[in-house]
Structure formats: C-alpha cells, structure tokens
C-alpha cells in the first residue's frame, strides 16, 4: 500500500525541504521505493538539496497540465536507484496547480511507489493546501520557538479539516518532527522545551533533529544529510524517524549536551 506523506509546517525556514530529502533518502536506503515531490511551485529548492537541479526537464506543473507524462518528469537519484524526484516549476506560481490535476498525479504515483513524500511550501495558501490535500500521513516540522509552534498548530487544524481524508471522516496520521534543536540553548531555557511543544500540539513526536553544521554542509553539496554522513547526529535522528514512519519502535533520543560524570549519574538516578 502506497503512502502519501506531506511534510509541512506553516512557517518558512524550519527545515521542511531538508527533512523531506533526508527522510526520503532514509526510507529509500531501507529498501522502499520513494518519490519526493516538490510542491513549492515558483520557489523550488528540493532539486538543489537532492542535487538534481541540472537534470530537470519537465516538472510537476507540466504533468498536472498534461504537457508531459509522469515518467518524463521523474528524476532518478544518482546514489539510490529507488529514490526519485518530481521537481516543481520555478517559472510558474501556485495558481497553476489544480485540485483534480494534483489528484491525478498523486493517484499515478501511488501505483508506482511505496512512499510519496510531498514537500509543502510555507504558508496556508493554495500550494500548501494542495500539498496536504491527498495525504495519508503528515510530518509537521517545528522549531522549538513559539511562532513556529503556533503555525504548526494552525497547520494541524487544516490537516484535520481540509484534506480528502478529513472530508471523508477519516484521519490523517500526524507526527511532529522537531528540528534545529539546540541542546545548549535548551539547557539555558532559551528554547521551548520538548514537553511544552508536544503539550501545545497534542500530536505524537516523530523525532528530534539537533541543530548541526552537518545539515548545512549536506545542503551545500546537494546531498540529503542521511546520505552525506549517515553517522552524523542529525542523520541518525532522521534515520530513526524514518524507521518510526515504517512502524518500528525506536527509542527516542533527546539530543543532550555532553554532561559530566556526576551529572549523568544523577540524571540517571532521577529518571
């Protein structure tokens, strides 16, 4: 059964595209066939993060409008043969997307792939609503700060009302992915803590991705962070998250500062 998963957030710059690429690559690495679809028409980025920007010929809009066939627009990843990209158009805008056109493309992708990851644009307008429209599951990417959390809350409300599943009276399975988590700042109380975020969003946690230079480095070379350096902390967190998406039970690791021996001892005793 193919699963359509939307990666969304409401707020911009929280790491939707990075997370889409990293989760897509991690799922593909574990043998699933995966396509990542860029819905950010006019401001596409996923092709860059995936390192496929120089191979784009046709795009999502061409397929939606029937100008090109789906196989012509799909780009296969150079590193993983079961990872594909459906890029967005950079020259058009979101109004070029139609509900039935997107529905048709998603239905066709369902017959070809195990996972369809939709990278949503920021905002709550047409692009974002169409990216979530046909989703079975959603990953809500949230930074540990109030504006991001409130926007995520808003997006969760839309997932519960504006998707096809919601309209049929079914549920979109939702997961919160906390990104750019900085243990040092968290310890100083400069960020919302995880419990507060989860309490506000009332949605299960998929993973916590630590703030890391590895993410930036991977983006710059056009490689999903899970492929660039699978041993780095963010890559391990994304890989764990992808295993949770596949239904595995994986213990949650809260990124922590390196503590002294006494602190660790006390911390463990208190737990």
């Amino acid at each position: 059964m193919a699963k359509v998963l939307v990666v969304t957030s409401g707020k911009g710059g929280v790491g939707k595209t990075t997370s889409t690429a990293a989760l897509g690559a991690a799922l593909a690495q574990s043998g699933q066939s995966v396509v990542v679809v860029d819905f950010d028409v006019g401001l596409r980025n996923l092709d860059l993060v995936m390192g496929a920007e120089r191979r784009v010929v046709f795009d999502l809009i061409n397929v939606v409008q029937g100008v090109a066939k789906l196989p012509q627009a799909l780009i296969r990843d150079k590193r993983l043969e079961n990872l594909w990209l459906l890029p967005a158009s950079q020259t058009r805008d979101k109004d070029a997307l139609t509900d039935e056109g997107v529905g048709r493309v998603i239905a066709e992708l369902r017959s070809r792939f195990d996972w369809i990851l939709c990278d949503s644009p920021a905002g709550i307008e047409r692009g974002a609503t169409l990216a979530m429209r046909y989703a079975d599951e959603a990953v809500i990417v949230t930074n540990p700060e109030v504006s991001s959390v409130r926007d995520s809350d808003r997006i969760i409300g839309m997932l519960d009302s504006k998707t096809v599943r919601a309209e049929r009276g079914e549920r979109v399975e939702k997961h919160v992915l906390i990104t750019r988590y900085d243990p040092a700042r968290a310890a100083r109380g400069e960020m919302l803590n995880i419990d507060d975020i989860l309490e506000i969003l009332a949605t299960p946690l998929l993973g916590i991705i630590p703030e890391s230079q590895d993410v930036l480095k991977a983006s710059n070379v056009g490689t999903p962070v899970t492929l660039n350096n699978a041993e780095s902390a963010p890559a391990r967190a994304y890989i764990d998250a992808s295993r949770r998406l596949m239904g595995e039970e994986v213990a949650m690791v809260v990124p922590a500062e390196r503590k002294g021996f006494m602190n660790r001892l006390l911390g463990r005793r208190a737990a």
Binding site: R154, G157, M158
Partner: peptide
Amino acid sequence: ENPVRSGQ
C-alpha cells in the same frame, strides 16, 4: 473532543 487549533 479535539483540541481547537490556531486559526479555528
């Protein structure tokens, strides 16, 4: 029965 979300 469900939380009331931002914007609702």
